[in-house]
């Protein structure tokens, strides 16, 4: 097992290098200089000032020199400082990442909890009314532009009915609340983003679960189990489900980048101070060091996600350990 993990970890290195290379060049081939924003079209800025700013940011060196310098630094986990406010990039990300991870992990668990039973029932009662209506239901979740649904629900639940807060993470006087009020307040603020994010991600996983379960039910050992006279519930839950859930773990690992990417929309509409918005702002302001760090860290998280999925898969199913290289 240890050897398997080490091998997988070593395999990540070339991927990481590729990731840094792609991020770096995509960003540097773009027009727009970060220093421009500093002045925001203020007529009181002279040209000398602008040139001075450009020099200060080291952007006048050739691009490959910039890349090598940057790579040398990130190996030491030094992602540089933000072009916008001069603060260490890694510190800014560290402050924003937990919220994004929390929302994504919670909604992933929610997806898993709903998608698995949904997929199982759909597979068992294949082509039934339930199956068909669930298909439509999960696809509606996928097909709704999230910001649109979010806005409608905010208007309904937040403004018209007044049952949930509209935006933000905490109430104004949060700091004066007691522990339970704090938990309740946070849960209220995060309920909509998490549920919505789960709703939009439900389609993929529940469809996979259904397919996976349908296949599992066709497997020879199921016939054997049935032939042995085991009760149907035991056939389904003990034999088929176990095998059907396994691939879902991998799929969840693969869905990490999609969730992180989608957080841009959620965090903007719900005014949540997470990673997605940090990235969007960095893009809009040409904050190169921040963009690169976010891309690299985002991709790195995906790698970790995949690795975790692989390891847990291998842990459950020893065949993987030996067959994968």
């Amino acid at each position: 097992m240890i050897r398997f993990i080490i091998k997988r970890l070593l395999g990540l290195l070339p991927l990481l290098l590729g990731i840094t290379l792609i991020s770096f060049f995509v960003i540097h081939l773009s027009p727009g200089e970060p220093t421009v924003l500093q002045e925001s079209m203020n007529p009181k800025v002279s040209l000398e000032v602008k040139e001075r700013l450009l020099k200060l940011y080291d952007l006048d060196k050739p691009i490959y020199v910039q890349y090598i310098n940057w790579l040398a630094r990130i190996i030491r986990f030094d992602f540089g400082t933000s072009f916008i406010d001069g603060r260490p990039v890694i510190e800014k990300i560290a402050r924003r990442l937990p919220l994004t991870l929390f929302i994504n992990i919670t909604s992933m668990m929610l997806i898993f909890l709903i998608a698995v039973p949904l997929g199982v029932i759909s597979a068992v009662k294949k082509n039934s009314v339930f199956d068909r209506s669930m298909t439509i239901f999960v696809f509606i979740g996928f097909a709704m532009p999230t910001f649109w649904l979010a806005l409608l629900l905010m208007d309904l639940l937040g403004v018209k009915l007044g049952v949930l807060p509209v935006v933000g993470l905490k109430s104004i006087d949060f700091e004066y609340f007691n522990f339970f009020e704090k938990i309740f307040d946070l849960a209220g603020h995060l309920a909509l983003p998490i549920v919505l994010s789960a709703f939009s991600g439900l389609a993929g996983i529940s469809r996979y679960m259904r397919t996976s379960m349908v296949n599992a039910l066709k497997a020879p050992y199921i016939y054997t189990a049935r032939a042995k006279g085991l009760p149907e519930s035991q056939v389904i839950f003990k034999h088929a489900l176990r095998n059907a859930v396994l691939p879902i773990v991998t799929i969840l690992g693969l869905s990490v980048p999609g969730l992180i990417g989608g957080s841009v929309i959620f965090e903007t509409i719900f005014s949540l101070p997470g990673m997605g918005r940090l990235f969007y702002e960095a893009v809009m302001q040409r904050d190169y060091s921040m963009i690169m760090a976010s891309l690299v860290i985002g991709a790195f998280l995906t790698l970790i996600g995949n690795l975790l999925a692989d390891i847990s898969y291998a842990y459950v199913d020893p065949r993987i350990r030996y067959s994968k290289q």
Partner: peptide, 18 residues
């Protein structure tokens, strides 16, 4: 594999903005 690691929407956003 490398491309699959990227949060695609991040990449899209950056490139289109640029």
């Amino acid at each position: 594999d490398i491309m699959l690691c990227f949060p695609v929407f991040f990449l899209l956003l950056a490139v289109i903005a640029f």
